[in-house]
């Protein structure tokens, strides 16, 4: 029955990706992308790849989102 969890996680990934694409608020897009990375780490763990899961959680959700926030703080928050 673990496939139900996998299906929910993959659906959440699709919803997150569409949300990142469609939002005009770039800060919201960064937060959505960070949660995308966290759920992607769980998916990697479900695919028996714990090494990639650790890397995704540390780099994707930690460093990349903070770099995005720094870039937004240097430019503008709203997409034009």
């Amino acid at each position: 029955m673990i496939w139900i969890l996998d299906l929910l996680l993959l659906l959440y990934l699709v919803v997150c990706a569409v949300g990142v694409m469609r939002t005009d608020d770039l800060l919201s897009a960064v937060i959505l992308f960070s949660s995308y990375s966290m759920v992607m780490a769980i998916v990697w763990q479900q695919l028996n790849a714990p090494d990639i899961a650790i890397t995704e959680a540390a780099v994707g959700a930690g460093i990349t989102s903070m770099l995005f926030v720094a870039a937004i703080s240097r430019t503008s928050r709203w997409e034009r």
């Binding site: 890397t55 540390a58 780099v59 930690g62 460093i63 903070m66």
Partner: peptide, 8 residues
């Protein structure tokens, strides 16, 4: 990954 954690 460990280095990325410390940098984070």
């Amino acid at each position: 990954p460990g280095g990325a954690l410390i940098g984070a």
